[in-house]
């Protein structure tokens, strides 16, 4: 094993920790970029799907209740996760006194103002 002095160790340490920092910085930037690209792509896809979903063929007769305890259909979520959406639907049902199987949600969207606030 070749001679390795304390100076070599110090130099290795400085280069080592700096390299770890740089690699992790690159990874952090990549995560941000990839997340943004994917979010933009998914929002675009969601919007185009929403347009297709507005065609008359997709519209279901309103006011027809599902059997007790049964729910059907899809809710478009924009900037909202499923958990939050479930809570919102439950709240609407509770406050309006209309059971969930008689309510129809088309979409739940996070308002732009709130979105900007959350990103800060």
């Amino acid at each position: 094993m070749e001679e390795f002095t304390i100076v070599d160790a110090l130099l290795t340490s400085v280069i080592g920790i700096a390299t770890v920092m740089v690699i992790l910085a690159i990874i952090a930037v990549l995560i941000i970029v990839v997340s943004k690209v994917i979010r933009a792509f998914e929002n675009k896809t969601a919007k185009s799907e929403a347009v297709i979903g507005d065609t008359p063929a997709e519209v279901k007769p309103a006011g027809v209740p599902m059997p007790e305890g049964m729910n059907e259909g899809e809710v478009e979520l924009i900037g909202t996760d499923e958990k939050t959406a479930a809570v919102i639907m439950a709240l609407v049902s509770h406050n309006s006194g209309i059971p969930l199987n008689r309510l129809s949600f088309k979409s739940i969207k996070l308002l732009d103002d709130e979105k900007k606030g959350a990103d800060k």
Partner: peptide, 17 residues
């Protein structure tokens, strides 16, 4: 938060010395 992961590796390089 990535940066904290890096900073917490100081011990490795300090111990190397």
């Amino acid at each position: 938060l990535m940066f904290f992961g890096a900073a917490a590796q100081f011990g490795i390089f300090f111990t190397l010395c």
